[in-house]
Amino acid sequence: MIDQMNALASQIKPATAVSVPVVEAKGLGLTFETNDGPVHALSNVNLTINKGDFVSFIGPSGCGKTTFLRTIADLEQPTAGTLSVNSMTPRQAREARAYGYVFQAAALLPWRTIERNVALPLEVMGFSRTDVAERIHRTLELVNLTGFEKKYPWQLSGGMQQRASIARALAFDADLLLMDEPFGALDEIVRDHLNSQLLELWARTSKTICFVTHSIPEAVYLSTKIVVMSPRPGRVTDVIESTLPKERPLDIRETPEFLAIAARVRDGLRAGHSYED
């Protein structure tokens, strides 16, 4: 009897650990008022992102995937529904420095060296000098940029710059990483490389990652959960739980399982009429 309960408890434990919601959207809507009338960037979005998830948002331009990410980051204000981040409002979460944000471009400050760029959030948040040095060292190691501390951004390739901006987002140990098409401007070879590095980093840090992308293979390769979105109005058309194992070598992309998920994503995009224009 006791053995049975213990067995039960051990089954429940990992289950509860997995299902702590980090982001919860209920009936979320966002309408921009423009001169050409209202634009429905987001309409009735219901979504729960749990701790440790790697969630990709995929869809064509104008489907609201970036807007949704910016709403989580308190860079846009929703006009309908509720959104909580770590059981707080997005504003409180931002003030508690709950997330790191990685933009489409590396957005490094050109007058700061790589290490000073990584130090930027730490300076703003008032970390001690020794703590800053230790964190710079640790996060640059995490993104394989050790040895480039004293370089200026223009001395690095595009992929390295984007890795530095990821290091900057990781430096203050936020549990949530919001990434807005971070590898969109990079060529496919660099992108493959960074994708596998990102998975490795995710496995090592067990962060929750929200990742916006245009690329179906990228979304399937990276995610535990794929959110398919459609434009006019911006909405969620499908949420796909990935059945791929956590361990993912690059050639997993040739397996039937991978192709099946990719096909479902493509179907979801087609169902949302995303291919029509």
Binding site: A73, D74, L75, R94, E95, R97, Y99, G100, Y101, F103, Q104, A105, A107, L109, W111, L120, P121, E123, V124, M125
Partner: peptide, 29 residues
């Protein structure tokens, strides 16, 4: 400074003074 850099400082919950000293002033040199 680009909107992206201002947004970045916003996500750090940086004050106006911090945004000035760390972003606006160096960008204006």
């Amino acid at each position: 400074p680009e909107t992206m850099h201002l947004d970045l400082m916003h996500t750090y919950n940086a004050s106006k003074a911090e945004t000035f000293w760390k972003l606006r002033l160096p960008a204006s040199v």
